[in-house]
Design a protein around this nucleic acid. Sequence first.
DNA 1: GCTACTATAGCAAATGAATCTCATTAAAGA
DNA 2: TCTTTAATGAGATTCATTTGCTATAGTAGC
Lengths: 160, 160
Amino acid sequence: MESELQVFQDYIRRRDLRRTRERERILQEVFEIHGHFDVDGLYLQLKQKGVKVSKASIYRALPLFIDCGLVREVEFSEGHWHYEHIYGHSHHNHLRCLGCGEIQEFENQFLNCLEEQLAREYGYYIQNHHLQVQGFCPACRQAAGLPAASNFLKKVDNEQ
Amino acid sequence: MESELQVFQDYIRRRDLRRTRERERILQEVFEIHGHFDVDGLYLQLKQKGVKVSKASIYRALPLFIDCGLVREVEFSEGHWHYEHIYGHSHHNHLRCLGCGEIQEFENQFLNCLEEQLAREYGYYIQNHHLQVQGFCPACRQAAGLPAASNFLKKVDNEQ
DNA sequence: GCTACTATAGCAAATGAATCTCATTAAAGA
DNA sequence: TCTTTAATGAGATTCATTTGCTATAGTAGC
């Protein structure tokens, strides 16, 4: 498989953009981060390593990484976007605790079938999906006195 | 089924808050909107009808509506949140066209099973989920010269 | 290498959604 | 009605993100 750098360089060539140290250094850093990141964290991490890049450059580079499929927006929370690199990773979804904010990642092959089903049913060409499930992790669930199950059954009862 | 107003009033009582004309007027307006809305649109719509409510009040009211299950955040796009009322509606998910921005709503009962599965597997108490599938609608797909299928198979081939 | 062309970086200023401040208003219970 | 205090409205503030401008540096042609 090509490296993320090659993917990016191909994209740059295709789009008639220019290769710059800054963009490639930002990309390298993004791929050194294990897990989610936000612009501020990325900026500080580069700063700590003595890399001089402005935030504006990060803001301008991220849409390019997203456009060529190397990065994606994970979620908007705390007033700003969180991202992750995706190249070479299998697609995963997020289970988020409303209590402590912990994020569990999970995979589910059904969602790929769902994509196919939607493609057939609506005639869409499906590109990707975002699934975020929210609830309470075991610790927060107990602290809040909630039962172990989801509120699925309750919901069905209430439905109209 | 109770009306949304009753649900809200029960919530207000339970939380020891106060009933106000503004909050109930905003709620009424939210339930008159068919489909998605954002704060600005809601504000202008009220203004056009001659209802004097400040944006601050809207921003303060929405978290209450969300907390009592009447409204939910649909998606963050164009730099701000979009909402929809949900009370009395079955839960639906969104299929969004990356070309024209059209949003198709769809339901899928499997997602409820998925919630149960996650509850068992991770010990979470599941509260809700957000699923957004992105792709190209038939018209935009043809305009872009894309095939009819999803990129599911392609993805599997590329995986690592 | 040198030159011309122009995309990009960096900085600072602007933008805009969301939040906060505070004086004023108005629920709700006594 | 009176008292208490939560809620409103208007404007100021915050802060993530975008933009304008100038200097810099890729890139292609010579």
